[in-house]
Design a binder for these strands. Structure first.
Lengths: 110, 110
DNA sequence: CAGTCTATTCGCAATATTGCGAAAATGCAA
DNA sequence: TTGCATTTTCGCAATATTGCGAATAGACTG
């Protein structure tokens, strides 16, 4: 079990939220960034989950998609924000998955 | 518009890659590219659909996310491959939507 | 303890995406 | 047709992501 940064290893909400509140206190425009951070965390976690479920090391997965372990590590970092569809697809493809993108309407409660 | 480039696969010399091949038997890489192309086309179409549904011109949407019309046009180009999560989120956010990413197992017909 | 495998971080080059203006093409209505 | 808004394409600079080695840290076993 990989111990990631102590920061976001546990429940998604707390750590990220606190960090962001400290940085962008009281800015509604930054609220969206909070959601993005959480989404990125989920992606990182999912990649890690899929890789370990396939019983692959970072180095092994890296070779499958033609890159190095450090790149995989970066993808599994909850704080990484540079996810591209191309990279997600490469990872997903190596793990026999496909990436589905959906746009979902946000309803804001008054 | 950028021309699609074929990715150069590295030579196979590992047991891991053999595993990979086993999981990919009967499914050449170019087939996956076709799926990606279609997925990109869907994204482009969806952005166009959401923008027009919101009764916005490319210029108007561009201003909402702090860029120019040519960028929006590029996003709505079915052949565009450079989609990043960050950009998709900017567009989605301006249209009151959120981007959902899902990894879905590929099911082969036995 | 040493040794091995794995994961993480850092630094920089290579590559890709974005920013943005301008021009050309398209569409539509008078 | 003209006129006007909109879309599309082009070119290049600015920015961001990826590629990759090397060093460090962590975990596990003998």
């Amino acid at each position: 079990m990989p111990v990631k940064k102590a920061k976001t290893l546990k429940p998604t909400s707390d750590a990220v939220e606190i960090l962001h509140r400290r940085s962008y206190e009281g800015k509604p425009a930054r609220l969206k960034n909070l959601e993005d951070a959480r989404a990125n965390d989920e992606i990182a976690r999912k990649i890690h989950e899929m890789r370990t479920a396939a019983a692959l090391t970072q180095t092994q997965l890296a070779k499958l998609i033609g890159t190095t372990a450090s790149v995989i590590c970066r993808l599994e970092d909850a704080d990484y924000e540079g996810h591209s569809l191309a990279m997600l697809r490469r990872v997903a493809g190596a793990l026999n998955q496909r990436v589905e993108i959906r746009f979902i309407p946000i309803r804001r409660s008054a």
